[in-house]
Design a protein around this nucleic acid. Structure first.
Length: 696
DNA sequence: GAGTTTGAAACT
DNA sequence: CAGTTTCAAACTC
């Protein structure tokens, strides 16, 4: 098919075409995004995956974008399905740009047909499939890093992934997950989420056994079409992952939407093997806790699942627990980055940890504060040369350099705490504060922040949370320019972020990392009590230095984003400052109640009021929760691309948080920075909200 | 690498 | 709520 020029095709254009025909939508949106931004797409994918399915989005535009992306990935996936999906994925990674583009065009029709089969769930199924595809694509990268076999041996890599996922779910995450579970149980309102977790658990438990039973269980719980699954036994390897992922995703989606069932059915149809599900179950479990905050985790998990699929869940033996742990760590960090993923909160990624995670993190970070679309793409390309080779002619471009620089910084940032007296059980400890266990890279002494001391950690967290429910919530909230708060009004910055509490700097002039605002790469706000504020990201008084010195700003952002990207949460609920805050906090929280909210799937969290619910029953908007993912995803999407319709439509009516929990919820503030980076953020933010919230 | 500075977190 | 202490990161040398 004729794929429109990436550059030319923008979401906006695609939107216009949606009206004409769904096919055009997919084609238009797909070809440009995928080709240009392999990595980015990954990020996006993960974000999208977690986001509600296309069905969720009433607006054709949104669905179109997502579908297009998914389709592309799916193409890729389908191609691989016949042969070793993973391998193909690995190979394709290097040459994603060209090969995928071709495949996409070819496969596009198929996907459409497939989607059409399941009218009700086609959107969702497509999304899920796409996600799987994305995973496949990303897996190769991961394999390269982790397995050390780029082409490699899929099996080993798969095993690695599988193990990793297992380990994560079982060990490191166990405490968090448990907390989440507890919360969920307490809060019956989120039945879907619980079901999903159950499924994951089941899969997990039965993974070793074969996971067949799991499938049935899942089907029962999710009301999936087991029949469909069985029918598709032929494509086990490929489908399995999809099915698992799909089911998981659908389940997640179900929270807010009833469409999940449909989606699951459609998706489940693809997957056939119970083993696959089990595999998914694992990834899901992992994802649930950590992923939320960041897209990276999602990706990783998904990819892992995908690998497992190929290898067959049974194959996935726990080869190296350590490696898994490490991976997990990285993932978690990344996730929390998210904004950071969690995506934003990935600042502290151990150096020794997965390169993949690094890359992912980098991508996420970039996503958080992308200067422009290109940046994201370039980043992706950096990791997977093949992917973007064609698109990125910018190797020499400043952004490219910047990306490399960021990668280096990320690597350097992969350090952990160095606590000596806090036992890593206080917020002094970055690991603990981020909801992460300390790991080898940490230089802490008498550390209790380890899985072995799970009970202690949890109890301590409870205590801290009892004092301050938002203690583990993201410190920085990003909001789009749409927000009209006192601060935002003064600051026209497209995208803005603010520190939840504001800093209290006296001597650093908010120009050093002592300042949390600066460290997070956000400007100071009226809520800050700093003296002599000279924050390059935005002064408390509204002064904006960023414009004057874009380069400096970028450097500052890099520094800031490096570490506490995970702490930053995008605020979709701009209109609802309180809510946004709460949601942001939730997204980042890995532990306990917050952890449940944040740790659990972003969707669930978003859809679920848990975070606030625990503290308060106010319903939270999912927007913030989903944002990290979207953020990364949206990064590539220019403002123009993001249709306003989506903005509005996708954003479900948010209920204002009446939550008392949201302490110190600073009124929505906007940063003054008007740098390109911030602008890009703005774009991202807009796009983000849409997917996350799907009108019931 | 050791020592200092800094400001958040914790405590009173 | 304010003041003080503790703490670990950030920074400097």
């Amino acid at each position: 098919m004729d794929t429109p020029d990436k550059t030319q095709i923008t979401p906006t254009s695609s939107l216009s075409k949606f009206e004409d025909s769904p096919v055009f939508k997919y084609i238009d949106s797909l070809s440009p995004i995928e080709l240009a931004k392999s990595r980015q797409s990954d990020n996006v994918f993960s974000s999208l995956a977690f986001l509600s399915p296309s069905s969720l989005f009433p607006s054709p535009q949104i669905s179109c974008h997502r579908e297009s992306r998914f389709l592309v990935k799916r193409h890729h996936f389908s191609a691989a399905s016949n042969s070793r999906v993973l391998q193909s994925g690995n190979e394709s990674n290097t040459s994603e740009g060209g090969s995928k583009a071709v495949e996409q065009s070819d496969l596009y029709d198929e996907n459409l047909g497939f989607l059409n089969n399941d009218s009700s769930s086609k959107g969702i199924s497509s999304d899920l499939l796409d996600e799987q595809l994305d995973l496949v694509t990303e897996l190769p990268r991961t394999l390269k890093y982790d397995c050390g076999s780029p082409d490699g041996n899929l099996e080993p890599c798969d095993e690695m992934f599988k193990n990793t996922s297992v380990e994560v779910a079982g060990q490191e995450r166990s405490p968090f997950q448990r907390n989440r579970d507890e919360w969920e149980e307490r809060q019956q309102s989120f039945q879907n989420e619980r079901d999903l977790r159950k499924i994951c658990r089941i899969k997990w438990s039965e993974e070793s056994a074969g996971g067949v039973a799991i499938v049935s269980d899942v089907a029962d719980m999710l009301t999936m079409n087991s029949s469909i699954i069985h029918e598709n036994t032929d494509g086990q390897d490929m489908r399995t992952a999809d099915s698992g992922t799909t089911s998981f995703i659908s389940t997640m989606l179900q929270f807010p939407l009833d469409n999940a069932n449909n989606l699951e059915n459609a998706e489940s149809g693809d997957p056939s093997c119970s083993c696959k599900q089990s595999e998914f179950g694992e990834p899901v479990t992992d994802q649930t806790p950590g992923i939320l905050s960041t897209c990276l985790l999602d990706k990783l998990v998904v990819s892992d699942s995908g690998l497992k699929k190929d290898d067959k869940g049974e194959k996935c033996n726990q080869s190296s627990h350590q490696q898994r742990s490490i991976r997990r760590r990285c993932l978690v960090f990344e996730k929390s980055p998210g904004f950071g993923l969690h995506l934003n909160s990935l600042p502290n990624i151990p150096k020794g940890q997965n390169p993949l995670s690094k890359s992912t993190l980098s991508s996420m970070k970039r996503g958080e504060i992308p200067h422009d679309k290109r940046t994201v793409v370039t980043e992706n390309s950096s990791e997977t040369p093949a992917t973007f080779g064609g698109n990125e002619a910018d190797d020499n471009s400043p952004e490219k350099k910047r990306q490399k620089f960021e990668l280096d910084e990320e690597s350097a940032a992969c350090k952990r705490c160095n606590c000596k007296r806090s036992k890593c059980l206080k917020l002094y400890c970055d690991c603990f504060a981020a909801g992460l266990y300390c790991i080898e890279p940490c230089s802490c002494q008498d550390c209790f922040n380890k899985p072995v001391h799970e009970n202690v950690v949890l109890e301590t967290r409870r205590q801290i949370e009892s004092r301050n429910p938002l203690a583990f919530a993201p410190k920085v909230i990003r909001s789009t320019d749409r927000i009209s708060d006192s601060w935002g009004e003064t600051n026209k910055t497209p995208a803005s972020a603010r520190h939840k509490r504001g800093c209290n700097c006296k001597r650093s002039s908010c120009l050093k990392k002592y300042c949390e605002c600066f460290q997070a790469g956000v400007g100071c706000s009226p809520s800050c009590r700093c003296e002599g504020c000279k924050n390059s990201f935005g002064r408390k008084d509204g002064g904006d230095e960023s414009e004057s010195d874009g380069e400096d700003l970028e450097a500052c952002e890099r520094n800031a984003s490096e570490k506490k990207s995970h702490d930053i949460v995008i605020n979709k609920d701009e209109e609802y400052p309180d809510l946004s805050v709460a949601s942001s906090d939730i997204s980042r929280l890995p532990f306990a109640y917050s952890g449940k909210l944040a740790g659990s799937f972003s969707h669930s969290i978003r859809s679920s009021p848990q975070l606030c619910t625990n503290q308060e029953n106010g319903s939270l908007s999912d927007s913030s929760l989903c944002q990290p993912k979207f953020d990364s995803h949206l990064q590539a999407i220019p403002e123009d691309e993001a249709p306003e319709v989506l903005k509005h439509k996708c954003l479900p009516p948010v209920q204002k948080p009446t939550s008392p929990n949201c302490k110190r919820v600073s009124p929505p503030h906007r940063e003054c920075s008007s740098s390109a980076a911030w602008r890009s953020r703005k774009l991202i933010l807009r796009s983000v909200p849409l997917p996350s919230f799907s009108p019931p």
